[in-house]
Each structure stands twice: as C-alpha cells, then as structure tokens.
Simulated assay, not measured.
Amino acid sequence: NTQSTESIGYYSFLTPAPRGPQNQTDNNGFGSVNTSNNVSSSLSQSAPIYQPQKEYTVSYFYRFESITGIYPIDLSDLDKSRTGNLEGVKVKVISKKSPAFGEILADDIILKINDIVVRDVSNFVDISNYLNKGTIKFEILRKGQKMIKEISIT
C-alpha cells in the first residue's frame, strides 16, 4: 500500500472469507447466519494509522480584533485534567503591540477577566467585546500557580 500523505500510514490485516454462501436463518428469524468455517482465500483490508500533528495553527476568529491582543484556544482534555479546571482558555498568541504583551504569556490559562469566569473561547470573545478602557484584571494559571495580572487599555 502507498501512503496518501506523510501524516497517515496504514495498518494491513487479513480477514478470512467464507468458501461459499451457506447461510441459514438464525433461531429468532432475524437475518442470516454464516455456518461455513472453510477458508479458501482472504481479503486484504487496511485502516489508517493515527499520527498526531506536531504543530497546529490558531485559525479561528480571523475577523476578531482583540482589544487585549490575546488570542486563546479552548482547553484540551489534557489541560483540563492537568489543572483540574473545566473552564478557562489557553493563550496561544499575543500581539506584540498589545497591552498584554509581556504580562500574559503563551500557554497561560485565563480563568477570569474582571472577576467574570471565562468558560471557553466564544465566552472570551463576548467578554472582550464589552471591556472598557482602563485597567483590566486577569486571573490566570501559570505553571500551576494562580496569579492576578493587570493590563491597561487606553
């Protein structure tokens, strides 16, 4: 078998094929049951091998202009199990010209904005759309430590 892309491989396995169509109705009268145990040939089948991508890109909300300069992703199941938090967002990109640059870091988990719990990316966008100019308080989780960070939006 040939591979269609570099990230997908294939497992090959053999499935026995019955010698002849010797089917009979089962005891309940629902369908047929193959009673042949003779194998004269086999069918080759293949299934894709899952190989996770090493890199990924943030390609959501291409029209979303973050007033904070923060572009997060939803927490993965692994993030949730590691932190014990079911809510929050993980920071992936921070605009270099934003007020959050240097205060909020990539891979920080934002738990709250101005004491409002951040559930997911959609909720983060909603909260961000209603932020006023001035000081914004973020409750974040960085390397297992909860901390408060403040940024000023002018």
Rank of each mutant, 00 (worst) to 15 (best):
S42D: 06
I73A: 14
D26W: 01
S7R: 09
K143S: 13
I94R: 03
K92G: 05
K112T: 00
Q53C: 07
E150Y: 08
I153C: 06
V58N: 14
L78Q: 14
D74A: 08
S7W: 08
S81W: 08
L111M: 07
G20D: 12
T15V: 15
L75W: 00
N129E: 13
N28T: 14
Q51T: 15
G84K: 00
R142V: 06
R119H: 10
F138M: 06
N38F: 12
R142L: 05
Q45Y: 13
P48V: 06
V93M: 12
P16Q: 10
I109E: 01
L105E: 12
N38R: 09
I70F: 02
S81F: 09
Y60I: 14
V91I: 03
N38Q: 13
V118I: 03
G20E: 14
G134E: 06
I49N: 07
S41G: 10
N85W: 11
K143Y: 08
S95V: 05
E65C: 03
K54H: 09
D79M: 02
R119E: 11
I151C: 04
S4G: 12
N123T: 09
I136V: 15
Y10R: 11
K80T: 02
P99L: 04
E65I: 10
N27D: 09
D79R: 03
K92M: 09
R142G: 05
Y56E: 13
P72R: 07
I109M: 06
N37K: 08
S46I: 11
N27G: 07
K90F: 05
S81C: 02
E139I: 07
N28P: 01
R119M: 07
V121R: 09
R19D: 11
E87K: 14
I70M: 02
L75N: 02
E6N: 14
G69M: 04
K80L: 03
K133Q: 13
T57G: 12
S66I: 03
L43P: 00
Y62G: 15
T2N: 13
Q22F: 07
P18F: 11
Y60C: 02
G84M: 05
S152D: 09
S46A: 09
S59P: 01
F61I: 05
P99S: 15
I49M: 14
F30M: 11
T5L: 08
K133H: 10
G144F: 07
I109S: 00
R142Y: 06
I110D: 00
L43M: 13
T57D: 12
S46G: 08
L14E: 15
A47P: 05
V118E: 00
P99C: 08
P21G: 11
V89W: 00
Q53E: 13
Y71E: 06
K54G: 11
I104A: 02
V91N: 01
P16I: 00
E139G: 01
K54W: 05
F64R: 06
G31W: 05
S66G: 06
V39W: 03
T25K: 05
N85E: 15
Y71P: 00
V39G: 06
K149C: 05
K146M: 09
D77L: 13
I140Y: 01
A106Y: 07
D26P: 00
Y56K: 10
P72Y: 01
Q53M: 14
D77C: 04
L14T: 15
G29P: 02
T83Y: 02
K149T: 13
G144H: 04
D108Q: 04
L86E: 11
S128C: 15
F30Q: 13
S66F: 08
